[in-house]
Amino acid sequence: MRITCLHTADSNIAVFENAARELGLNQHQFVHVSRPDLLAAAEKAGGLTADIRQQTADVLLALSEDADCVLLTCSTLGSAATLAAETAAVPVLRVDQALAEQAMKTAGNVVALCAVETTLEPTRHLFAQVEKHPQALLEMHLVAGAWDKFKQGDLAGYLQTIAAAADAQYLNGAACVVLAQASMTGAAQLTQMGKPLTSPECGLRAALA
């Protein structure tokens, strides 16, 4: 199976390669395309505009011509996958769809952590749409200062900041903590109080299914 991933951060390529290896998916072929300009445009615009959504969907459609499945790994641009999926001949998935579905099966407080402000609204919208446990309650939190560290290239500091935020939510009584962006995945290995859900693992399982 040929799975093509569209990223908006170069560092996410290694994140997905690691996740695939941990899930034992070596028999599948992974192709990675990185377009940081798409996320940069959304950040500059203060969110996902119709133009950027269409532009991203066009990229996904082009990638779908030579793949068995296409995964959009950027949470800010997520709805572009839904748009592309309407006309693509193969599945086009947003990596956080399966994440939302798994998280909202939890009874109790589900806390979704985001590092980029532009991810808050798309994530909130996605989590509100999926089928949920009657006792699931969603909370959204922006991890202050984390994205600045990421943009400065301080990946270790970025992941430590997110892990600390996740631990604080577990201490606060969260039944489930979600790392909403793929770039946050490494923080799941650094937490002390619980194991947060991450989008690469959930998304890759969904792609295979």
Rank of each mutant, 00 (worst) to 15 (best):
H28N: 10
T119F: 00
V59R: 10
S11R: 11
G78M: 04
A20P: 03
S183T: 03
I13L: 11
H7D: 02
D10N: 08
A174K: 02
N109K: 14
G186Y: 04
R124S: 14
A84F: 05
K105A: 06
A103W: 01
R21E: 00
S183I: 02
L72G: 05
L155G: 04
N12Y: 02
C74K: 05
R21W: 04
Q55V: 00
R21K: 14
G153Y: 09
K105R: 15
A146E: 03
V110L: 10
H32I: 09
L72H: 05
R2G: 08
S64R: 03
M193T: 12
E101G: 03
A50E: 07
T106I: 07
P91N: 09
A100V: 01
A163Y: 01
Q27P: 04
A98M: 03
L23N: 01
A164T: 15
G173D: 13
G145I: 06
A165V: 07
G153D: 06
E43S: 09
A174N: 04
G24L: 10
A188R: 05
E139N: 14
Q192W: 00
A9N: 12
H125E: 15
G47T: 11
A156Q: 14
Q181P: 02
S79M: 13
A168L: 13
Q102E: 14
D51W: 07
A89Y: 01
Q181V: 08
K149Y: 02
L137F: 11
Y170N: 01
A40S: 15
A103C: 10
L126G: 00
T82F: 08
L77I: 02
A175K: 02
Q135D: 15
A41F: 13
W147F: 15
K151N: 15
T56M: 07
E121F: 09
G153W: 11
I162W: 02
V31G: 06
G173V: 07
L113V: 14
A206C: 05
V111G: 11
S199L: 08
A128F: 06
M104V: 06
M184W: 12
E22V: 09
R35C: 12
F16K: 01
Y170C: 03
H32T: 13
L60F: 10
M1D: 00
L137Q: 15
V70W: 08
Q54F: 06
L72D: 00
S75Q: 04
V95G: 00
Q135S: 14
